[in-house]
């Protein structure tokens, strides 16, 4: 441990015992138009959701039955729902819920997937055999039904929703990570590290992880949108998120009864959901483009 710390900080620019990531290629992020635009729009959305109290004068949970089911107007730009709550403020506060849930799910699933998939790929043998079967089992369940069953068993709460969705998603990261590690492991620089006497820990952290992570991170970005959608679907069914917390799925659920009389109750959350999912998909595609070595400009020998 001491040795690794020392090496990591030796030249003063490594953040610590975590895999150091070479940021040099990431300048390409800024030159890729899709990625830049997506990141900007998503950034604005996140900012709006966190600055919601400053933007809208209404409490998203303030019930005002006198002004229920109002059409969009100057006072309520997106109208009000059946309890008289302002749709715009619920939409903005709901964005925060959705983003945070989705982020927690992806971080949870990613950590589990990277650790278990990485271990399976690196150590091989019996560990790989067992972990691979476990991954297969998790992948064989249809995602949303599995999540439903889990929440049914664990009880309905935000934490359980995150756990359930995390357990649905980790296996695909684990499988990808395992494949990545298997291919990176065969590179000469890993053999070379072994020959100079590097420990398993050092080989994993310094040589394998930094070179295996890129596609897993792309997949995670693509998944952010899916997870927001799944969380919305579960709360549409009334699971996971309590009705008092503003969330896009539960807004859709509440709005569906008034589809004919007040379509804006479903149109706006639906639109927000669609735009977010599309943005994350485009972002993931953009990342894939950036990280794909084939897309690099033709190298020219000694140049």
């Amino acid at each position: 441990m001491v040795k690794i710390m020392k090496s990591a900080n030796y030249f003063g620019w490594h953040p610590g015992p975590f895999p150091q990531i070479n940021w040099a290629p990431y300048h390409k992020i800024l030159t890729n138009r899709t990625v830049t635009v997506c990141l900007m729009i998503l950034g604005v959305m996140v900012m709006l959701s966190f600055l919601a109290p400053l933007i809208t004068p209404y409490d998203p949970n303030a019930i005002d039955l006198k002004s229920s089911l109002q059409s969009p107007s100057v006072d309520h730009p997106l109208g009000t729902d059946h309890l008289g709550r302002d749709v715009l403020s619920r939409l903005l506060y709901g964005a925060k819920t959705s983003f945070l849930i989705s982020l927690s799910v992806v971080v949870f699933a990613l950590s589990l997937g990277i650790i278990l998939g990485g271990a399976a790929g690196y150590f091989g043998g019996l560990a790989d055999e067992i972990l691979s079967r476990v991954i297969d089992i998790f992948l064989s369940f249809p995602g949303i039904i599995f999540a439903l069953a889990l929440i049914g068993a664990l009880g309905s709460s935000v934490l359980n929703l995150i756990i359930a969705l995390g357990l649905v998603h980790w296996a695909s990261y684990a499988r990808l990570m395992r494949g990545q590690v298997l291919s990176v492991k065969n590179n000469d620089y890993v053999s070379s590290a072994r020959v100079i006497g590097a420990s398993d820990r050092r080989i994993l952290i310094k040589h394998i992880l930094p070179n295996a992570l890129a596609p897993v991170i792309v997949l995670a970005t693509l998944d952010m949108g899916h997870v927001i959608l799944s969380a919305a679907a579960l709360s549409f069914l009334g699971l996971g998120i309590p009705p008092s917390v503003p969330e896009w799925g539960s807004m859709l659920n509440a709005g569906k009864e008034f589809m004919r009389t007040a379509p804006y109750l479903t149109i706006f959350p639906g639109l927000a959901l669609t735009i977010t999912v599309v943005l994350f998909s485009l972002l993931g595609d953009g990342f894939r483009e950036i990280l794909d070595p084939e897309s690099e400009v033709m190298g020219l020998g000694a140049a």
Binding site: I21, N22, N187, Y189, S192, I196, G197, K206, P210, N211
Partner: peptide, 20 residues
């Protein structure tokens, strides 16, 4: 493929010294 593509040359050369 003989050197870790994510490590600067100096880190690769220093690695055995750091380990041993």
């Amino acid at each position: 493929t003989s050197l870790n593509p994510k490590m600067k040359v100096q880190d690769s050369i220093a690695e055995p010294l750091i380990i041993h």
